[in-house]
Design a protein around this nucleic acid. Structure first.
Length: 490
RNA sequence: CGGGGUGUAGCGCAGCUCGGUUAGCGCGUCUGCUUUGGGAGCAGAAGGUCGCAGGUUCGAAUCCUGCCACCCCGACCA
C-alpha cells in the first residue's frame, strides 16, 4: 500500500504535501527551500509552457535569454525595485574554491570578484540596461520579449511549488512608445493568463489591480489573477505590471519620436511561475490524490489490461494495442499500463494518486462483450462502454472532465465569495468559511493595514470594474467607490 | 528571522520519560510458488553512521550542548 494521504479536513498542509509525494511531482532537495521537480511534475510545467508560449507568440512576442548573473550595481538603479528585492538576493562574491593546508575545501579568498554578482530575482535591471542600447528610435519599438528561465529569491519560509528559493517561470519584458500601448499590453497579457488559467488549468480566476502595498517593486500598477484554493485561501497565480517609465528613467532608455524629440520608453513586465502547479494541485485534487485537468495531463488515458492465463493475456493485449492505436490516432495522450508484476487493483490506485483523468480497464469479459470499463478520475464514476467508437467517447469524456473541473471550481468560488457590509460580518465570514470577502474599502493604506493586522486578510485585488459603487467602508465609514476582494492568501 | 513541533531501513511509525545483550513493527524491496475485474497469500532473504557534531558515562536512539532539515504559527514574499 502506498503512503496514506492525509484528508484535507484534518490537515490541509499535510494533505498538499502528501498529494505531491504520492503523485511523484516533486521532492525536497538537500538545499533548504529548493525542490527537485520529478518527471510527473515537470510534465505539467511543460504543458503549461507550451500552451502559454503559443499564446505569447500569437500576440507577437519572441523568446530570448538573459543571463542569470546581474552586476550588483544594476540592482541599485531603480529605488523601489532595490528596496523590494535587496533583502532576498543570493550574491556571488568569489569565483573558485581551493583545498587548504588541512585538506579542507574552502573558498579561495584570492578569487574575490571585483563586483559582486546577484543571482537574478527577476530580470528587469539587466533587461533595461540592454534595452537602453537596443532602443534609439521610435522605429525600434515596440520590443516584445519573453524569457523562460529560473530565478532565485532567498525566502524565509518555503513550500513546494508555492514558494521555493529557486523557481521556474517566464518573464515578459516589453518596451513601448506610448503609455497607452504599454497599458494595452499589460492588459492583453492579463487576458492571456486568464484564458490559460481557465481553459487549460480549469481554474477560475478573478482579474484585478493590486493595491500600492501589494504592488510589484518598481511598477506603477500591478494587475493580477487570483484564485481560491479548497481551503478558502487565495493564491496569486500571475501578475502583469505596468512599469510606466520607471526603469526607462533608471537605465536612461530614451527614443527619438516622430517629432524628433527624446522620450522615455514605456514598459511592462509579466510572469507566471511553477507556483501555478501548486495552484493546480490545490484547486482540483481530492483525498485520494492528484486530479489533473485533461489538457495538462501527460497521460490523459491509461488502459489497464486484466488477464489470468497467458491465452487471455495475448487476446487482451492484442485488443489493448488496437485501442491504443485508435486513441493515439485521435490525438489522445494514451498509454497501456502493461507492467508485469503489478496487479490491476494496484495500477488503479496508482493512476488515481497520479491524477490520470480517465482509466480504461479491459479484461476477458470485455472481449466477449465488445465492451470496456471507463472510469473518470474527477467524479469516480465507472461505466461500461462499447469498444466501437471508443475514441470519440473518450474524447468527449475528456472534454466533459475538463469542463466539470472548471464548473466545480467555479461553483466552489461562488460559494466562497461573500459580500459583507459590516466589520463583524467580515471577520465572521473569514473565520467560518474563508474565501473572497467582497467589502467596501476607503482606499487608504491605513485601513488596509489595520484590517490585515486584525484579520490576516489582505486586499487581493481591486476589480477592474467597480462592484456596487458608492458604498461605505465598514471599518471607517468613509466613502468607497467599489467593493474589493479581501482574503487570507498564500 | 522569532515561537512551537518533528527527525529511528525506501515510506509510515514504536522504543526515549526512568541509559544496559544483537534497535523493533507495518508497508515497500529481492527470491520462489500460488495469484490477478479495486493497493494479493505463503515461505525465505536483504536493507540502519537511530538527522549531524561534540559532551556526560563503564555503557547513549535514550541524558546535556550546538548545528542542520522539515512541518505549523508569526514577520516577508510570486
Amino acid at each position: 500500500m502506498a503512503d496514506a494521504i492525509t484528508p484535507r479536513e484534518s490537515d490541509y498542509s499535510q494533505w498538499y504535501l502528501d498529494v505531491i509525494r504520492n503523485a511523484k511531482l516533486a521532492e525536497h532537495s538537500p538545499v533548504r527551500g529548493c525542490m527537485i521537480i520529478r518527471p510527473n511534475g515537470y510534465a505539467i510545467w511543460e504543458y503549461m509552457q507550451s500552451a502559454m508560449d503559443a499564446m505569447f507568440k500569437e500576440t507577437g512576442h519572441r523568446n530570448a535569454y538573459f543571463p542569470i548573473f546581474i552586476p550588483q550595481s544594476f540592482l541599485a538603479r531603480e529605488a523601489a525595485h532595490v528596496e523590494g528585492f535587496a533583502k532576498e538576493c543570493a550574491v556571488v562574491t568569489h569565483s573558485r574554491l581551493k583545498v587548504d593546508d588541512d585538506g579542507e575545501l574552502i573558498v579561495d579568498p584570492e578569487s574575490q570578484l571585483e563586483e559582486n554578482l546577484i543571482v537574478r530575482p527577476t530580470s528587469e535591471t539587466i533587461i533595461w540596461d540592454t534595452y537602453s542600447r537596443w532602443i534609439q528610435s521610435w522605429r525600434d519599438l515596440p520590443i516584445l520579449i519573453n524569457s523562460w528561465n529560473n530565478v532565485v529569491r532567498w525566502e524565509m519560509r518555503t513550500r513546494l511549488f508555492l514558494r521555493t528559493m529557486e523557481f521556474l517561470w517566464q518573464e515578459g519584458h516589453t518596451a513601448h512608445a506610448t503609455r497607452e500601448e504599454a497599458m494595452e499590453e499589460t492588459l492583453k497579457i492579463l487576458d492571456i493568463y486568464t484564458t490559460f488559467a481557465e481553459e487549460y488549468m480549469a481554474m477560475p480566476v478573478i482579474q484585478g489591480i493590486k493595491t500600492a502595498r501589494e504592488r510589484f517593486a518598481g511598477a506603477d500598477e500591478t494587475y493580477c489573477i487570483e484564485a481560491i484554493m479548497q481551503d478558502g485561501k487565495s493564491l496569486q497565480a500571475g501578475t502583469s505590471h505596468f512599469l510606466g517609465q520607471n526603469f526607462a528613467k533608471a537605465f536612461n532608455c530614451q527614443f527619438q519620436n516622430k517629432d524628433n524629440q527624446l522620450e522615455y520608453v514605456w514598459a511592462t513586465s509579466w510572469g507566471v511561475s511553477t507556483r501555478m502547479i501548486g495552484a493546480l494541485i490545490m484547486v482540483h485534487s481530492d483525498d485520494k490524490g492528484l486530479v489533473l485537468p485533461p489538457k495538462l495531463a501527460d497521460t490523459q488515458v491509461v488502459l489497464v489490461p486484466i488477464y489470468k492465463s497467458d491465452v487471455e493475456k495475448v487476446a487482451v493485449m492484442e485488443a489493448a494495442d488496437r485501442i491504443q492505436e485508435e486513441l493515439l490516432e485521435a490525438g489522445i495522450r494514451m498509454k497501456v499500463d502493461a507492467r508485469e508484476g503489478f496487479r490491476p487493483g494496484w495500477k488503479f490506485a496508482e493512476n488515481e494518486v497520479e491524477g490520470t483523468p480517465i482509466r480504461l480497464a479491459l479484461g476477458p469479459r470485455d472481449l466477449e462483450n465488445g465492451s470496456i470499463e471507463l472510469a473518470r478520475r474527477d467524479t469516480g464514476e465507472k461505466e461500461f462502454v462499447s469498444q466501437e467508437g471508443l475514441a470519440t467517447v473518450v474524447a468527449e469524456k475528456l472534454e466533459a472532465i475538463q469542463n466539470n473541473l472548471f464548473a466545480r471550481a467555479l461553483a466552489f468560488r461562488e460559494e466562497h465569495t461573500t459580500k459583507v457590509d459590516s466589520y463583524d460580518d467580515f471577520k465572521d465570514v473569514l473565520d467560518s468559511k474563508g474565501g473572497f470577502v467582497l467589502a467596501h474599502w476607503d482606499g487608504s493604506a491605513e485601513t488596509e493595514t489595520k484590517i490585515k493586522d486584525e484579520t490576516k486578510a489582505t486586499i487581493r485585488c481591486i476589480p477592474l470594474e467597480a462592484i456596487d459603487p458608492n458604498g461605505v467602508d465598514p471599518l471607517t465609514g468613509e466613502a468607497s467607490t467599489t467593493r474589493v476582494y479581501f482574503a487570507r492568501a498564500y
